[in-house]
Design a protein around this nucleic acid. Sequence first.
DNA 1: ATTATATATGAACATATATTCATATTATAA
DNA 2: TTATAATATGAATATATGTTCATATATAAT
Lengths: 102, 102
Amino acid sequence: MTEIKHDALDEETLFLVSQTFKALSDPTRIRILHLLFDRELSVTNIAETLDLNQSNVSHQLRFLKNLRLVKYRREGKTIYYSQDDEHVMKILQQSIDHACHH
Amino acid sequence: MTEIKHDALDEETLFLVSQTFKALSDPTRIRILHLLFDRELSVTNIAETLDLNQSNVSHQLRFLKNLRLVKYRREGKTIYYSQDDEHVMKILQQSIDHACHH
DNA sequence: ATTATATATGAACATATATTCATATTATAA
DNA sequence: TTATAATATGAATATATGTTCATATATAAT
């Protein structure tokens, strides 16, 4: 048996946790992260693949970048995005599997 | 090494996953769920403990109940709520721990 | 029946959010 | 320099969301 402590939640933790889940609470952001599971993709590539407005994708990527869920790498005019939080990606994958099987 | 398949997300799965994370994206709901980790509590008790409006707590509990994240049990005038999704509670706990240690 | 207590509900409202549009920035090529 | 391509940004807007208020419902006690 594993003992688990449930301390009172401090404001900072509460905010950080809620923000992280907020990132995963939007279908568009889930689809973007899902694409970035095992590869890096450019903004245009993401937008085309998901049939989304380029501006929309940029906004969502900024959101994810601010939370350090994705990182980017520039190559000429192109910017390649990739995942940057193993833990969150694992949770997302778990939840997708869980939802699929029901 | 573990092979992972990343199929395209169907609409239904996408909606379900996003809704679940939406439940966890609000500080008030996180605090309520956190209280229900290892016990059942009445609406009034939750409201008093978290210093929240009774109506607010009722609304949030309905939200969580619709997603089957909590269940309830009536005893006279009092209704006791408790958690009803081990998987989601585990994810929440993981994320709180993860956020705490940073 | 009346009163009191616990919870739920709907309307109202202020704020947050997702998306689009137009345009700015940055880098490459001609 | 001018033109083109990739991305970012800010304003605008429609919709979603969280909270409160007033009130309804349900149960129990007197």
